[in-house]
């Protein structure tokens, strides 16, 4: 049976990328603990609007943990702390204690400037994908799907790599603001499959170059990214990216 809890939300307000931000607080009383954290924020916003104030702005969409839109840094952990790792929308109030103050911050990284409050601009991820996160195939060119045999283990591992939702938690958690886990997951997925092998070297170089160009930091293998990844991507992907990258460079 659900019980009710009361919490204080301490949330980041910031009007634009260049503006100075600050924290506001709001008390939420008697929230059923089977409410999701985002629903609690909905309730807070309803109360704020009721007081004639502007609501707290944050990104969210599918609320099923798959679209990767939600991006809140809660009590010092991207997406908040859960046992298995989950997105913000899959965080439930039962994870908090009655009377607790919950600090909500945006992803803080130079690569992700704040748009408003806790909504950040993650366009950089799209740009990295555009640099090479695809196989160059035109619609209608494909051969029969079963013409390429792929060992189950490879397909499964590629699937694990492809599970990345591009939320940016890895960058948010990294003390270096590095996007290596994101980039390596895509590179790994395609490097593991025969379809992606043809362009593997080119892809690794192009995506890494774009990542560097966009000002993301370097990987120092602290594993903070892997610890907070809601889709459990592992740094073995990063090793694979390094391998692909070094081989590509050596071949030049």
């Amino acid at each position: 049976m659900a019980k009710n809890i009361s919490v204080t939300i301490k949330f980041w307000k910031q009007n634009g990328p260049k503006e100075k931000g600050h924290f506001d607080t709001h008390e939420l009383k008697n929230i059923p603990d089977d409410t999701s954290f985002l629903e609690a924020l909905d309730i807070m916003n309803e109360e704020l609007i009721g007081e004639g104030k502007e609501p707290f702005v944050f990104d969210h969409d599918c609320r099923e943990g798959i679209c990767g839109m939600c991006s809140l840094y809660i009590n010092g952990t991207p997406h908040g702390k859960t046992e298995r790792g989950a997105t913000t929308c899959q965080l439930y109030m039962r994870k908090f204690k009655d009377g607790e103050t919950i600090t909500v911050e945006p992803w803080r990284s130079a690569g992700f400037p704040v748009i408003k409050d806790c909504m950040v601009d993650r366009n950089a991820f799209d740009k990295i994908m555009q640099a090479g996160g695809y196989t160059t195939i035109r619609t209608g060119q494909a051969q029969d799907a079963n013409a390429i045999l792929i060992p189950k283990e490879d397909a499964d591992e590629a699937m694990d790599c492809a599970s990345c939702i591009g939320c940016g938690a890895c960058v948010a958690a990294c003390k270096n603001g590095s996007a290596m886990l994101f980039v390596s997951s895509k590179v790994s997925q395609l490097a593991l499959l025969p379809q992606g092998k043809v362009e593997a070297a080119k892809r690794a170089k192009a995506m890494v170059a774009k990542m560097d160009e966009l000002g993301f930091g370097n990987c120092t293998n602290t594993r903070a990214c892997e610890a907070v990844c809601p889709k459990c991507e592992t740094i073995s992907n990063i090793a694979r990216l390094n391998r692909e990258f070094i081989c590509a460079k050596l071949a030049d």
């Binding site: 695809y134 196989t135 195939i137 619609t139 209608g140 060119q141 494909a142 051969q143 029969d144 799907a145 079963n146 390429i148 045999l149 792929i150 060992p151 189950k152 397909a155 499964d156 590629a158 699937m159 492809a162 997925q189 395609l190 499959l193 379809q195 992606g196």
Partner: peptide
């Protein structure tokens, strides 16, 4: 049928059997 071909060529990791077939 073309859709499946197209997606496999893009690198969509559909589930496979041990023989490597979809």
């Amino acid at each position: 049928n073309n859709i499946i071909d197209q997606c496999v060529a893009q690198g969509v990791p559909f589930a496979r059997e041990y023989g490597g077939m979809l």
